[in-house]
Amino acid sequence: MVGKSWISKGLTHLVLLIGVVISVFPFYWLAVMSTNTTSQILHFPPKLIFGNQLWINLKHVFANIDFLQGFTNTLIVAVISVVGTLFFCSLAGFTFAKFKFPGRNFLFVSLLITMMIPSQISFIPSFIVMAKIGWVNSYQSLIVPGLANAFGIFWIRQYCDGSVPDELLEAGRLDGCNQFRLYWNIAIPILRPALAFLGIFTFIGVYNDYLWPLVVINNPDRFTLQVVLSQLNGIYNTDYGMVMAGTLLATVPLIIIFFIFSRNFISGIADGAVKD
């Protein structure tokens, strides 16, 4: 029995390691590219070991763009978006999953349908809306439209469906909890893994969003990080070493954030049951 579990453990790690190698390889290559000159990057066969250009490339990044300003702006937009999205989406998702009210199915299906509308085409009309309400060049235009989004609500609803026991809510009701209390005190702790996912990927989505902020924001002091990064591309030729170094620098915070917050994938219930 001991031997067998040792083998299966080994097998598990082997499978995971193969997956990890495939996953990480392009990222590793990105890191390698950021340490080489453009010529070395474009060379064939490509260089797969680290070069010594990282500092020079990074220096070029900082000489050409205001990285920190862009990062700060993105952080402001992303943090507000995450907090707002988590709140509004979980509240609505929980309500859809656990309460019956007239028109619920109709409302939910129409919410799903909005996700199926191709987004690129609404680019210009969306800008017209922003222009009409005077939000061009403001952070609101980046934050508010996505605060309560169909994706998040759908996700929380599906998660709630399988994970929040009706008995628990019934017990809460008998204790005199109102609907918000049921949400806040009972559902939220159980929803922790789902919220962690939604929070992290909302953050990534906002962090990596490029076209919309490019169009809506004019003032260089308010450019978000991706918009700032795109300034590195030349019209005729591009210094790939510099672009990759900037890209790497922008990606590292995301990985750190993910590493820290992904601990919340261990659910509230499991936390109580198995202390580690």
Partner: peptide
């Protein structure tokens, strides 16, 4: 003079701004 360096899709931004009628340089 406030120079605004537009990265990437310059023409898309110009087009959208012209249609939207706000924020043009």
């Amino acid at each position: 003079l406030e120079p605004q360096k537009i990265g990437g899709d310059f023409r898309l931004k110009l087009q959208t701004t012209l249609v939207g009628g706000d924020g043009a340089p």
